[in-house]
Design a protein around this nucleic acid. Structure first.
Lengths: 396, 396
DNA sequence: CCTACTTTTTCCACTCACAGGACAAAGGAG
DNA sequence: CTCCTTTGTCCTGTGAGTGGAAAAAGTAGG
């Protein structure tokens, strides 16, 4: 099927498209209530959008006391591809134009195999989703990578955990392979955008989104917009010093947050504890699987294992201390905790909250919710779809 | 003299006013090069600005190879008042519409005497400047206070070092007393705006401005706009933990940056060192003055006193560690160091630089200048004038 | 079923912002 | 003094956008 190549011709059309994306199908009259345009002008713009087939008519709306209005919705054939590349696995999802997930695949993968191998796999996964009848093609794709990105060009820069990716023209290459517009961003930023679009951060203009996975990063949203920094490395909090003269870190320093708490650090500490027989629960799991991960720690903690709980609390305290500093500095309206280790749940959250509420001034913490992300593993792909839709639903 | 009450009628006029503010007098032709408007449209808007007397004709410009153009400048009678209230002193300055300082007074003052007493003094200082013939009245005033501010209303909130100021309607009260529009902001934010307007940060969109005075604060500029946070307390980095289990702080925690390094902490440490006879230089100064301040430490350091140098280095290291974390998080394009203790000069700067370049990843620090502010004590009042001019030079 | 009222949509005339060309005014270079 | 360039002014055309009138399509009540 022919893909939609049309773009909104002006800011009004872009506004309408975003309203339809975020609010779902709407009657013409309802749209009129939300934008500050005369009825005539609105009708003209809607007609033009219908002509370009970006939106379609969708029957009659319920009456509001008089003549029934016609419903308008984004073209139901529009499809976005959301790709969230993690350190050890990749998520690929298809959404409609309202960014609802129609299909979602997760596969293990090693990002260190380099961009060529990874994108081969990603393209295969995308083809699989397409073959299952969810999409006949893609109108745009958002890609999240676990490292800093030169955003305008969509090129990873100096990614510490991604050797071989430095300078690889992700945006251009994928745009060719997929035959559609592509935008690339840091995976943490996409998670923030996901939670902003469909998660806990829907109504907040300034918030932080801390992702604790293999590494630790933080999405920064200022006035509704993601802050990426001068070189695209904003939010890279994994290497903030959390423990003076602490553990050595891969970056060459000592005491980095990431060296003390992250999926990788947690697995290492748990293995150590198991080997030293500090925890029967963890030792048994190590015996059974041959290796331990954050999931095992979560399970052990759920079973009441004191060592596992201590590890989580300890890590939560470290993380909380760092976040406390960021809260003082940035004064957000919300802090979202997400990523792989959110399985650690309430114990982790409680430790983080304690440190933040203790370590920041009351004015900054007084009305500050600190919550777990709502979307779990789908936050990244939803954010990716949101990224490309923001791009496409803006004036050409 | 009748004050200018006119405001730009639309975004074009606002744009032109800001160009004239930031670039000084300009010919109509030069203005045309900078805005994307047809010559006819530009002429219309300039004529309207001339009618409102916001701008005036100012003779003929030099020829650019053909007919000479007419110069336009902001009305030379426009006057802004910039007020920078510190913890222990207050700066009041008068500027013209191009934000050039025409007169500047600094007086000691104790902010703890409360807003009524302070503003009595401020109004007297403003009257003195007016009486000296620099201004016949003020078209607007910007006020900086050393604590968080609910920006839209211009009301200080829960300022730790300013008992009696909480909830005082500064904006409204001063607007009445001065008979002109008033905007209120945190003093650190104003310093950032000052350096952005006329100092080292003229060309940078994202930067941090760390002010080390009686306390420590940080102005955050994102995309050219000051970030104030959800409750107006963004940049409040004085109470970030710099030393685990360190010195007790007035805020109730231990190890806050401000408890280890700030004008107050430095004076305290220097006095201690003098009393313990660790430094002859400092002891002599204590003897002579009865008290020590950051200025004495700076003088002792300049004279080569090892203890003083150590104090500065130690403080710079602490500050640098905190800034390193902020740089990782925020990824600015520039870090400006300002405030009272900048008299400590290169020793301080070197310590901070060392810690930041060591403690943050290369991608964030690779091209990151860390410099002293250019404007010294005038940064605050220039920023204050800039604040109110931004407000007045925006569409009504 | 008919009438009165509401809401939605379309149509149309009118205003306004703005662009861009023609032309006059003012200066520079030879 | 002539030719060229730049600047300023005037004027008309165009397209965006508004707001009123009226038609269309409902609901509610008798």
């Amino acid at each position: 099927m022919r893909r939609m190549t049309a773009r909104p011709a002006n800011a009004h059309q872009a506004r309408l498209l975003r309203l339809l994306r975020d609010g779902g199908p709407n009657s013409r009259a309802q749209l009129g209530d939300q934008v500050d345009l005369s009825r005539s002008k609105l009708a003209v713009e809607v007609d033009r959008l219908l002509e370009t087939e970006l939106v379609v008519a969708d029957g009659l709306a319920a009456s509001r006391g008089g003549r029934r209005s016609h419903n308008i919705r984004l073209n139901p054939h529009l499809r976005f591809l959301g790709v969230d590349i993690g350190a050890t696995s990749v998520d690929v999802a298809v959404t409609n134009a309202e960014l609802e997930i129609l299909g979602h695949i997760n596969q293990p993968m090693d990002v260190r195999e380099g961009p060529v191998a990874v994108f081969e796999q990603v393209l295969a996964m995308a083809a699989k989703l397409r073959a299952s009848g969810l999409a006949e093609g893609f109108d745009g794709a958002g890609i999240g990578v676990p490292g800093p990105v030169r955003f305008p060009e969509g090129i990873p820069v100096a990614p510490p955990i991604m050797p071989g990716w430095d300078g690889f023209p992700v945006r251009e290459a994928l745009s060719q392979d997929l035959g559609c517009p592509v935008m690339v961003d840091n995976d943490v930023n996409l998670m923030a955008m996901g939670e902003q679009h469909a998660g806990v951060a829907r109504t907040v203009a300034d918030f932080l989104c801390v992702k604790i996975g293999t590494g630790i990063g933080c999405g920064i949203v200022v006035g509704g917009e993601v802050h990426r920094g001068t070189t695209g490395s904003a939010g890279d909090i994994g290497h903030i010093q959390a423990v003076p003269d602490g553990r050595p870190c891969a970056c060459g320093n000592r005491g980095c947050l990431e060296a003390h708490f992250s999926g990788a650090a947690l697995a290492r500490d748990a293995t150590e504890a198991a080997e030293q027989r500090l925890s029967a629960e963890l030792a048994a799991r190590l015996e059974a699987n041959g290796t331990l991960s954050a999931v095992d720690v979560a399970a052990a903690a759920a079973a009441g294992d004191a060592t596992a709980l201590d590890l989580i609390r300890e890590g939560g305290n470290r993380t909380g201390q760092v976040i406390a500093g960021l809260v003082s500095f940035f004064n957000p309206g919300l802090v979202v905790i997400g990523g792989g280790v959110t399985g650690l749940g309430h114990t982790l959250l409680a430790a983080i909250r304690t440190q933040v509420y203790r370590g920041s001034l009351p004015l900054a913490t007084g009305n500050l919710p600190i919550v777990l992300g709502e979307l779990g593993p789908t936050a990244g792909v939803i954010g990716a779809a949101r990224l490309i839709s923001d791009h496409l639903f803006s004036p050409a």
